[in-house]
């Protein structure tokens, strides 16, 4: 009898313990499910911005020492190895031959530039283009702003390119964020350093330099730093730089310039950034201006 009683007591205790453990486990599960639901997060901007993120003031970009203006080499017009197509005289190139290509042409290309080029990448409807683009990129921040996470390391565009295997072509698009700079020479001097850097990564790379696109009159009225005259001046200088370095100047601006010299309203949302439909016109232009490999 005695043993039976003890067995009964033991069973009762065991049952009570099991029920308690089950209760604790059930409560823990409820808590986990609750944690899966979260409130929306609110964000605050940092109070103090790094200097490089502040709007560019023209005076800060002036060189502190005067330098002699560089002699710009007269661009070659014809060589024995090519002829300028009669319907494409606005394009500067050296010993290249243009051909129409398909999107596989971009497989070994890298696109580097500002928000306008980022728009091209996103709305081109071509997946997996290799691109180092960001809002506000300039010819200087190419070397200074670590915007890209490559294998867990934050890198500048320059460093990212150094870590990009097997690129053969580079498409560049810069200039709109530098319109407020006082000195065209300084802009070109910095742009030239980018070309030199690209060639140091791949001496045989084909560099395509997209001209600075026009802006609309309404955009200029809203933002006085935008200037169609400055854009034209920059593009002329870029064209000369491209010839000097053997890069290919692509006058994409010509397809988005209206008769009045400004970007027509229908191409853009804000007079500066192309809309998704207009990006297809840009893409068509690039596909019609592929270059035979050197």
């Amino acid at each position: 009898m005695k043993i039976k009683d003890y067995l009964l007591a033991a069973f009762t205790i065991l049952l009570a313990l099991s029920l308690s453990i089950a209760a604790v486990l059930f409560a823990a599960h409820e808590k986990r499910m609750e944690l899966a639901q979260k409130e929306p997060v609110s964000f605050q901007t940092p109070e103090n911005l790094p200097e490089e993120l502040l709007p560019t003031e023209p005076t800060t970009e002036e060189p502190t020492t005067t330098t002699e203006a560089e002699t710009v080499t007269e661009p070659p017009t014809e060589t024995e190895s090519h002829s300028i197509p009669s319907d494409d005289s606005r394009i500067y190139f050296t010993n290249y031959t243009f051909q129409t290509v398909d999107t596989s042409y971009f497989d070994d290309a890298v696109f580097i530039g500002n928000s306008r080029l980022q728009g091209f990448i996103l709305y081109s409807k071509i997946p997996d283009l290799r691109a180092y683009t960001y809002v506000g990129m300039t010819v200087k921040s190419y070397f200074t702003k670590a915007e890209f996470n490559i294998n867990g390391t934050q890198m500048t565009a320059a460093e990212a390119l150094e870590n990009t295997p097997d690129f053969q072509k580079v498409y560049l698009k810069l200039g709109i964020n530098e319109l407020g700079w006082v000195s065209t020479e300084q802009f070109i001097d910095s742009y030239s350093k980018i070309l030199e850097h690209i060639y140091s990564c791949n001496p045989n790379a084909i560099i395509f330099i997209n001209s600075v696109l026009p802006v609309s009159q309404a955009a200029i009225e809203k933002d006085p730093t935008l200037s169609q005259e400055k854009i034209i001046e920059y593009n002329k200088a870029i064209q000369e730089m491209a010839a000097k370095y053997g890069a290919c100047y692509l006058d994409v601006a010509s397809i988005f310039t209206g008769e009045d010299g400004y970007m027509p309203y229908e191409y853009s949302f804000d007079g500066v950034h192309l809309n998704a439909d207009s990006i297809q016109l840009w893409l068509k232009y690039l596909l019609e201006h592929g270059i035979e490999e050197r």
Binding site: T12, I13, A16, L17, L19, A23, F26, A27, E34
Partner: peptide, 16 residues
Amino acid sequence: LLMIATMFMALTACSN
């Protein structure tokens, strides 16, 4: 003991 266990279970379930 059974009563205590039942109360404990009820308390832990309610507290969450």
